[in-house]
């Protein structure tokens, strides 16, 4: 066969495969947008569910997810950023840092339902927090820790070595150097990772199944020791556990969840793009 023809055929096959990956994404988005848009109105977003979830809004689930995400960030961002600082600025290439990196890789690969089991074992039962926003937040926080560490590491590593040398050579201490000459320039990258973490924490269901999520709780949580509804679990419940939920409510819930996660990811993509363009070194 002529090599040029061979090349044409091969490239076409590769192109078709790429379409197979990307087009379903569009189809999923279109289906959910078209069928869910009808449900979107202020009442749906800001009212309690009524009549066994077959009517009314999904406000407690939205609010619950916001609480959980904030709680997870509160825990994971400081820990993740400090951990990245340890890896990039303090650790030498030793056995210890190798084990730390391997642990992070493994944390990233632990199945989300295993995080759920862990959260149940340690936070709900052992520490006695019960099924609560606190337990759920901590579980989600641990789950997004690898995301935050990895992107913070990349951000710190992208800060040129010369900034550190200059700062140290002016007599600044190591921590001052990190605080004033490294962290500010790594901030956009850390922020990007944080936003990705938000998207991930908002969308996961398995880790909150046994640690916080309430099946049907048409009132708002009063403290971090209360249970709460959450968007992804709510979608699971109304699409598999309860018969007779109107289609618009299901698609509407899926759309709200999807929008929340996609907006976060788009923000991260845009931020990263802007950062790369503006970078002066």
């Amino acid at each position: 066969m002529n090599v040029q023809v061979e090349q044409k055929i091969a490239f076409s096959i590769l192109f078709l495969c790429t379409l197979l990956v990307v087009v379903p994404v569009l189809i999923i988005l279109v289906i959910i947008f078209v069928k869910g848009a009808g449900a979107l109105n202020l009442g749906f977003l800001f009212e309690m569910p009524t009549n066994g979830m077959t009517e009314g809004g999904i406000f407690p689930a939205i609010l619950g997810t916001l609480y959980l995400v904030l709680g997870a960030l509160f825990f994971a961002v400081p820990l993740g950023v400090l951990s990245a600082i340890y890896l990039v600025e303090y650790s030498q290439e030793t056995v210890l840092s190798r084990i730390v990196k391997l642990a992070i890789v493994n944390l990233a690969g632990v199945p989300s339902v295993v995080y759920g089991l862990f959260g149940l074992g340690i936070f709900v039962l052992f520490l006695g927090f019960g099924a609560s926003i606190l337990s759920g937040s901590l579980t989600l926080g641990i789950m997004i820790l690898p995301v935050i560490i990895t992107s913070s590491r990349e951000a710190l590593e992208s800060v040129p070595q010369s900034f550190r040398i200059v700062s140290l050579s002016l007599g600044a201490s190591k921590w001052q150097t990190i605080r004033h000459s490294v962290l500010p320039h790594a901030l956009p990258g850390i922020l990007t990772g944080t936003i990705l973490g938000i998207g991930r924490a908002a969308g996961e269901t398995a880790p909150i199944l046994f640690t916080v999520a309430a099946f049907y709780l048409p009132k708002l949580p009063q403290s971090m020791f209360d249970q709460t509804m959450a968007l992804p679990y709510h979608l699971y419940v109304i699409s598999t556990q309860v018969p007779g939920i109107p289609e618009t409510i299901r698609y509407g819930t899926a759309l709200v969840l999807l929008l929340l996660v996609l907006i976060m990811n788009l923000a991260a993509i845009i931020l990263r793009y802007q950062f790369r363009r503006r970078k002066k070194w």
Partner: peptide, 16 residues
């Protein structure tokens, strides 16, 4: 020590 003994490098490294 580094405050007392300063260095100017071959390349100017202005901080951003």
């Amino acid at each position: 020590l580094r405050k007392r003994v300063s260095i100017v490098f071959a390349l100017p490294f202005p901080l951003p």
